[in-house]
Amino acid sequence: MAKGDSVGKRAPLKIRRPPVGASPGTLIADPAARRSELRLTLISPEKFKTIDNASIDELNTHYDRWPVVWLDCTGLANIQLIEEIGRIFNLHPLALEDVVNSGQRPKVDFFEDHAFVVMRMIDDVTAHRYEQIAVFFGRNFVVTFQEREGDPFDPVRKRIAAAMPNRLRSRGADYLAYALIDAIADSYFPPIEAASELVDGIEDQMLNTPHKHQMRQLHELRRAANVLKGALWPMRDTLATLIRNDVTFVKAETKIFFNDTLDHSLRLIELVENQRDMLTGLIEMHLSLTQARTNDVISYLTIVSVIFMPLTFLVGVWGMNFEPESSPWNMPELKTYYGYPAALLFMAIIAVGLIAFFKWKKWL
């Protein structure tokens, strides 16, 4: 969801594709893509090293000297840089094409010596801002491609920097890839939980007094839930495929951790489905409450109209211009000494009688 309010406003997702007839694997940069920057993290069981604003030369210098290398590329504007990264790590050109053409459906592809995972990532939890994240990993490397700055990987970086014993520094590249994918999955919990709290608050307000702005909030929340559903269901399939694979660079013990992330994704899907059902119910309840309130207003107005109808009739009759001296049938009440208070009393008796009748019929 593009940066906006807390209920999930988002910009329309535009999928970029190569020109019709272009050769497979053709990389074409998005004119709006951010400038590419590299962050190189070198990992061994004993130590680690992080190089910000790294260069290709630094990557070539350290690539073969460390047990695990994590290269994080932020921004997809520099096609030559992305192609060079693909050459160094022997990444498949079709996968690199999916990297620069953002808006891909979450998936996993296995190649001879590496895997390619595409997911939707929340890079700004407070703004609910999504982007595509591409993860390559093989025997001794992990390469991530992000569209822009901002990601949920800070806990992973802190774990890499933690003192020994440190599983992230000792279990290999597949475990590091698991940690990154798990961080992406877990980043969905805060916005879903925040939306659930907002839904509960709106429900409490509706039960007291329904307002028009609540309907707008409910529709925006349901739209946000649909976006989450569109990201989470393919994520589940992706994680299930990672668990079922039999490639050599994903160890059996790492599959156990991937299975835990799959459980997280299933839990997220359940939360989103429950939230969507609740939102649908609240929208229907809001419509019902609004209709009931309208019916109550119409009922009260009808009762008031019925009460005033005989009074208006009497006032209209007595307000006509009669001459009682011309005939005894020509409105003799006009000459009555207490005619005015008697008329008011009579009309009051009629009004009170109608109100008592309505209460007896339980219409009031």
Rank of each mutant, 00 (worst) to 15 (best):
R129Q: 13
R129G: 02
Y130S: 10
Y130D: 14
E131H: 09
E131P: 03
E131F: 06
E131V: 08
E131K: 05
Q132A: 15
Q132R: 13
I133G: 06
I133C: 11
I133P: 00
I133V: 14
I133H: 07
A134W: 00
A134H: 04
A134R: 00
A134I: 00
A134F: 01
A134P: 01
V135G: 04
V135D: 02
V135M: 08
V135T: 05
F136T: 03
F136W: 03
F137L: 01
F137M: 02
F137Q: 00
G138P: 00
R139H: 13
R139P: 00
N140R: 08
N140F: 09
F141S: 01
V142P: 01
V143A: 08
V143N: 02
V143R: 04
V143P: 06
T144C: 12
T144G: 12
T144W: 02
T144F: 00
F145D: 07
F145Q: 06
F145L: 11
Q146G: 10
Q146E: 11
E147C: 10
R148F: 12
R148W: 11
E149G: 14
E149Y: 03
G150M: 12
D151G: 05
D151L: 06
D151M: 07
P152Y: 00
F153N: 01
D154E: 15
D154Q: 15
D154V: 12
D154T: 12
D154L: 15
P155Q: 11
P155A: 01
V156M: 10
V156L: 08
V156A: 11
R157K: 13
R157G: 03
R157Y: 01
K158W: 10
R159W: 12
R159T: 08
R159E: 14
I160A: 09
I160G: 12
I160Q: 10
I160P: 07
I160F: 09
A161Q: 12
A162K: 11
A163K: 13
M164V: 10
M164W: 03
P165N: 12
P165I: 07
P165C: 14
P165L: 12
R167C: 07
L168N: 11
L168Q: 10
L168Y: 09
R169W: 02
S170M: 14
S170F: 09
R171L: 15
R171S: 14
R171P: 02
G172S: 07
G172L: 11
G172C: 13
G172N: 07
A173F: 03
A173Y: 05
A173Q: 05
A173M: 04
D174S: 14
D174M: 05
D174L: 01
D174V: 02
Y175T: 11
Y175D: 08
A177M: 04
A177F: 00
